[in-house]
Design a binder for these strands. Structure first.
Length: 134
DNA sequence: GCCAACGTTGGC
DNA sequence: GCCAACGTTGGC
């Protein structure tokens, strides 16, 4: 079981839209490192959903329901997607500022590698964010 | 809107 | 295979 964090700009695809859809395929990844992370995702893995640019906060938890397959939005076989469903909305969104200020989250990729859009999390980091959001 | 960080591209 | 130039992301 692994833990992940994905970013989305809310005006492009928001958590609210995700809840409305009930299920989505995570497309648009055009970065090799992020792509590699998508390929590592297993069914049942939990994924934090982060709003970048506007909001800059973790807003909910999703779950992988289908492992990677060819990105249907491009012919290029380099790129893949996974299917996600929403699991729960955080009672209190966890902001980037909170994460940066938290002593247990100093090494999180969200802070250390700001531009990466799909990253893995340690269990401790995942749990910490969940507890900050409860 | 600016700019830092960093990934990618292309010339040599 | 190195590295400069360029483009993109995302925080501020």
């Amino acid at each position: 079981m692994n833990y992940w964090l994905v970013k989305s700009e809310p005006f492009k695809y928001s958590w609210e839209q995700f809840l409305k859809d009930g299920r989505t395929f995570w497309d648009g990844v055009r970065n090799y490192q992020a792509r590699n992370n998508l390929r590592e995702m297993k069914e049942g893995d939990l994924v934090l959903f982060y709003h970048s640019n506007e909001g800059k906060q973790v807003v909910g938890v999703a779950k992988v329901v289908k492992e990677f397959y060819q990105d249907p939005t491009t012919e290029d076989p380099n790129w893949v997607v996974v299917d996600l469903v929403p699991v729960e909305t955080l009672k209190k969104p966890v902001t980037l500022a909170q994460i940066k200020a938290d002593e247990y989250l100093q090494d999180i990729s969200l802070v250390r590698q700001g531009r990466l859009s799909v990253m893995s999390l340690k269990v401790a980091e995942f749990d910490r964010i969940i507890s900050l959001g409860s």
